[in-house]
């Protein structure tokens, strides 16, 4: 089954810079895909289009067979509940504990308290932070903070997880830990799309690699490497 499908998708920003040009791409359910390319090649645009933070200029995007370009704005929250997002800067709330940060994601979509008490410890165990649930983000290392943010993105068990440079601020050893968690999440059946320009990670994982350059798709390789 196709989880994500881009059909002739182009995005031109208001200042006339073309971020994506005529992208055709299909990602199957349960796939792990690296989106590589230098800064400004369109990786972030690709991710923002999927969560409808921005609107495509041309073409259609399908998620689980549904055309999200025709989605009413009142349905966007529903779409986002099915897509977990992880960013380079973690986006954690500094005045909330680890537990509260993760629980917040369930609270704001109106989940009942008993479910929160059940789900949050589970997902914290998955990322290996179950003994730090009462710490505040500033008491954690960068890698731990990113694990909290992964926990928050995944606590709702979305079928898709998007990661935009999740290891961009982390050293190689910590990055490996993050990649292990993302692999684990992928193994459960989650489709994972990760934008990165971390050559070592891509080369060691040997997953599907899609390369963008100035908004164009120039390479799509199964079990690929970062390239040169």
């Amino acid at each position: 089954m196709d989880m994500i499908e881009f059909k002739n998708v182009s995005k031109v920003y208001d200042d006339d810079t073309a971020a994506l040009k005529d992208i055709d791409l299909t990602i199957k359910k349960g796939e792990f895909l690296f989106l590589v390319g230098p800064s400004g090649s369109g990786k972030s645009t690709f991710i923002k289009l999927l969560i409808k933070e921005i609107k495509e200029t041309k073409g259609s995007i399908f998620i689980a067979g549904r055309n999200i370009c025709k989605l009413k704005s009142s349905r966007i929250p529903q779409l986002r509940r099915n897509i977990g997002c992880v960013f380079q800067d973690f986006k954690l709330l500094p005045n909330k504990t680890v537990f509260e940060n993760v629980a917040f994601a369930l609270e704001v979509i109106g989940r009942p308290g008993y479910e929160i008490k059940l789900q949050v410890p589970q997902v914290l165990k998955l990322v290996g932070l179950h003994n730090k649930d009462q710490s505040y983000p500033h008491q954690l290392s960068g890698g731990e903070q990113q694990r909290v943010s992964i926990a928050r993105a995944f606590v709702n068990r979305p079928p898709i997880l998007l990661a935009d440079e999740p290891t961009g601020n982390l050293d190689p050893a910590t990055s490996d830990g993050i990649m292990k968690i993302l692999s684990r999440i992928n193994l459960i059946g989650t489709t994972v799309v990760m934008a990165t320009h971390d050559r070592n990670i891509v080369n060691s994982m040997r997953r599907r690699v899609v390369e963008l350059e100035e908004g164009e798709l120039i390479r799509d390789q199964k079990r690929g490497v970062y390239g040169d």
């Binding site: 969560i51 997002c85 986006k91 704001v108 109106g110």
Partner: peptide, 11 residues
Amino acid sequence: VMKLVGATNWF
């Protein structure tokens, strides 16, 4: 963050 995880506008 609220928008990211799919809170509705009204929420």
